[in-house]
Simulated scan of single mutants.
Amino acid sequence: MHWSAFLTLALTASSNALIRFQCSQLVVERLDPLVTPGQVPSPHVHQIVGGNSFNASMEPEKDLPGESTCTTCQFSEDFSNYWTAILYFRARNGTYKRVPQLANAGFEGATGGGMTVYYMQDPLYDTAQKSKVQAFKPGFRMFMGDVEARTKAEAARFRQLTYTCMSDAGSREHETVAFPGHKCEYGIMTSLRFPTCWDGVNLDSPNHMDHMSYPESGTFESAGPCPATHPVRTSQVMFEVIWDTSSFNDPADWPEDGSQPFVWSFGDATGYANHGDYVFGWKDQSLQNILDTSCYAASCGGKQQSIADMNKCAGLKRTVEEDIGVDNWIAQLPGGHNVEYTKNAKREVPYTA
């Protein structure tokens, strides 16, 4: 279904509860307090949105709503942090430039493009959204994906980490698990859907994944049951990030063999290592209150702020000062990563599907 048609249907449904909102970009730098806490700089560049208490460590016992003074997200009581790796374009001459981002349709003007965040009780296309789900607890955090994945089989254990080659702002069809192999007129959307079954006890785990699980059978979309080890059904957290690839569509800049030229900030040129990080930080019971309300997107009550106010929180001072290829071409990826088209590649070779 085309996105505009879905919006029309969802907004006319009599009973639904799907939260969809934009977050402006807080900062772009090499920090990762979830995977490499305290390490300055972290191995690769990330783009972060959310509460301005984001820092290199972010101890689990810290109260994010209490530590933050503002958030770049539309819901002003959401001081969570959401982050992903950064996408780069690698030119034929071997130099790199960071791919800018676009805000989703309807959220134009968000600083840095940022990302769109969803919390869903039921599949995105189910406008009823009737299921009862539990909000996360203070201190909760999770990670999804594998930065070492370079094959489809390795990526398969993480359901629904996808790419959409966009012809216009409404494109949502034909998702793939690898980078698109041809130019995308409007941009490339990455969609990251997190697991939805919690063990009900642990707010985190050593790999930041084991306390969460996918349904025992079926999928979130098919209302698959949670396994006995992870019996608590949570909302599905989903990120949408639109990478504005439109200025990189000149075939003269692409590799001579025509292979796709985009690479994640940690060196993956296959796209299979797509991943995301989430640290919960909603104030008090604000998220649960919204999840228990029959609503859709911006009509979901709670305390909301304008894009202009979201943008006032953007531009957090960087801890790591380095050239990350925002306005100019750089000779190598920050952190010195080599481009990998295959698992543990020793040299740069064209990627083939």
Rank of each mutant, 00 (worst) to 15 (best):
Met209Arg: 15
Ile48Gln: 00
Ala5Cys: 03
Cys197Leu: 06
Lys130Thr: 11
Gln160Thr: 08
Leu291Ala: 09
Gln134Thr: 12
Ala273Asp: 10
Lys132Ser: 13
Glu221Trp: 10
Ala103Tyr: 09
Thr71Pro: 02
Ser80Thr: 02
Met189Ser: 13
Leu34Met: 14
Gln134Lys: 15
Pro138Phe: 01
Pro100Ala: 07
Arg157Gly: 09
Leu316Met: 03
Gly276Asp: 01
Trp83Phe: 14
Thr319His: 10
Ile86Gly: 03
Asn81Phe: 02
Leu161Phe: 11
Asp78Glu: 01
Tyr296Gln: 04
Arg159Pro: 04
Gly170Gln: 11
Trp254Lys: 09
Thr190His: 05
Gln39Ala: 14
Ala13Asp: 10
Lys130Gly: 00
Ser4Gly: 02
Trp329Gln: 08
Arg193Met: 11
Asn207Phe: 07
Gln74Asn: 12
Thr190Pro: 04
Tyr351Met: 05
Cys197Glu: 12
Ser246Pro: 05
Ala17Ser: 15
Asp309Gly: 00
Leu192Asp: 05
Thr196Asn: 12
Lys346Gln: 11
Val35Cys: 06
Gln39Thr: 13
Ala149Tyr: 10
Ser15Gln: 14
Ser57Ala: 11
Val326His: 02
Leu291Thr: 06
Ala345Asn: 07
Ala110Tyr: 02
Asp284Ile: 01
Arg98Val: 02
Cys184His: 09
Thr196Gly: 08
Gly112Arg: 03
Ala169Gln: 08
Asn55Thr: 03
Glu348Phe: 13
Ser247Leu: 04
His182Ala: 12
Leu34His: 00
Trp329Val: 01
Asn202Leu: 00
Asp63Pro: 03
Phe248Pro: 04
Pro33Gly: 13
Ala345Glu: 10
Phe248Lys: 01
Tyr272Ile: 08
Asn81Gln: 09
Pro255Ile: 08
Ile330Tyr: 08
Leu192Met: 10
Gly145Lys: 09
Ser171Arg: 06
Thr196Gln: 03
Lys62Val: 11
Lys152Asn: 07
Ala252Tyr: 04
Gly112Pro: 06
Thr162Gly: 04
Thr151Asp: 10
Ala178Asn: 14
Ala223Lys: 14
Leu287Pro: 01
Glu77Asp: 15
Ser235Ile: 01
Met142Asn: 07
Asp250Gly: 05
Thr234Asn: 10
Gly302Gln: 01
Ala10His: 14
Ala103Gly: 11
Val177Ile: 15
Ala13Pro: 00
Ser171Thr: 15
Val49Asn: 01
Val201Cys: 01
Glu67Trp: 07
Phe280Asp: 00
Ala345Ile: 11
Leu18Lys: 06
Gln332Phe: 06
Leu287Val: 02
Glu77Tyr: 07
Thr219Leu: 10
Asn93Arg: 12
Gly200Val: 09
Pro206Tyr: 07
Phe107Asp: 12
Gly38Asn: 02
Val279Phe: 11
Gln236Lys: 06
Cys300Leu: 07
Glu29Ile: 02
Thr111Phe: 13
Thr36Lys: 08
Ala331Asn: 14
Pro261Val: 09
Leu18Trp: 03
Ala105Asn: 03
Asp323Thr: 03
Ala56Ile: 04
Ile242Cys: 03
Glu61Thr: 14
Glu175Asp: 13
Thr196Val: 15
Thr352Tyr: 11
Thr164Asn: 14
Leu26Cys: 00
Asp32Leu: 10
Tyr163Pro: 06
Gly114Trp: 11
Ala308Phe: 07
Ser24Glu: 08
Tyr272Ala: 05
Leu124Met: 12
Asp253Asn: 15
Ser171Met: 10
Asp309Trp: 01
